[in-house]
Nucleic acid binder design. Sequence first.
DNA 1: GCAAAAGTGTTTAACATACACCCATGG
DNA 2: CCATGGGTGTATGTTAAACACTTTTGC
Lengths: 223, 223
Amino acid sequence: MPKAKKYQFAVIASDVVILTVRNGALQVLCIKMQKAPFTGKWAVPGGLVRPTEAVDHGAHRLLAEKAGLHDVYLEQLYTFGKVNRDPFGRVVSVAYFALVPSDHLQLRTTKEYAGVRWFPVRKLPAMAYDHAEIVQTAVQRLQAKLGYTNIVFSLLPKAFTLSELQHVYEVIIGKSFDKRNFRKKVLGLKLVRPTGQKRVGEANRPAHLFSFTHRSIARVDIL
Amino acid sequence: MPKAKKYQFAVIASDVVILTVRNGALQVLCIKMQKAPFTGKWAVPGGLVRPTEAVDHGAHRLLAEKAGLHDVYLEQLYTFGKVNRDPFGRVVSVAYFALVPSDHLQLRTTKEYAGVRWFPVRKLPAMAYDHAEIVQTAVQRLQAKLGYTNIVFSLLPKAFTLSELQHVYEVIIGKSFDKRNFRKKVLGLKLVRPTGQKRVGEANRPAHLFSFTHRSIARVDIL
DNA sequence: GCAAAAGTGTTTAACATACACCCATGG
DNA sequence: CCATGGGTGTATGTTAAACACTTTTGC
């Protein structure tokens, strides 16, 4: 029994910053806007949260509908609530960020829109709404969490080489690490475990493949 | 020009978890509910965000209106968006947490409600809505941030003794630290600086007073 | 003079950092 | 046989952890 007259309403939206490491860079999935006043600008996937679904559920749904992604890491990021952030009216956006492993990337181009593209986060196109700020917030959160959690597991496939793991860190943090020290660290923390397999067929010595000992987020001092 | 028919609306609320260290415990400010269906239960201060104000602004306003607090540390915590979290209808709450120094506490009892009280976070009363969960989230955030930021500055007055500082850590983290090591750490990090003053009039050796070198949040490895 | 909290250094262990060469494969 | 990335150990410096007694005040 809502006493609607007494209250003022707003629209709840959710925007999802989908990040991956691709081509040696941290990249974000963007969709080209088709509507004024942002025609031609890019936005991260998002949309309205339904009155009958939890905000978390809306984020999962939008991730699936707009990007075709399921079973990826998804975490609430921040809520953006400036009055005029959307020219449509009062829209409060609960932003999330998702992390997808580099081998899930085939799925994405099979999408509805032709105007769906990855952009390196350091070379963003002109963004609609406050989405440049949202992306920046997501990147900062990811950089911070890399250092004190095992969240990196969500950016790598089931099996990977230690060089690939190190590369993900280097690309996101933006500096390089000593190979021997890095290996000592991740092995010493029992973050990863050798699978016994090797990656074959490359023009160099085959690398051992590893997998994560835990695939749920935990606090670990890495950097 | 909102095309209202096409969209569905919700109510945006904000709830503020106000924390302090008092009587040797981390405590949270609660207000006794006067309305059904939560009559007699306790809630953290909160209310609706106005359609013409930013969500951040609403949190500041509610902090002032409901608790009489100004110029305290305030940070967005998390957005709670389950469909039935509020029996009134669809209310999405953007929760914040505020930290107040132990010497600001006189202000609080001069408030409108008689039903305003501090509770130790480890002995919460029966809480309305999902406020027990909101408080728990705030406490966890605070505990984590104590370890890797200088956020503790917002819980102490301008001048304080090193024992008082250590006590705040011990109460929030829930374990005790070695006095000598603790002092070495905070002094070595240049987190605090001696004021030259002493706290006099207690039945023991007077303690040197210190103040924070920086009163804005920064990343510092403390624990 | 006694109770109560303040203040102060050293030793040891763990961890972080810096650093260079040989190995296994494909082409 | 050459190019490419894979793989490995040690020495040094820094930081963390454990630990007990003397000092200064109020009463």
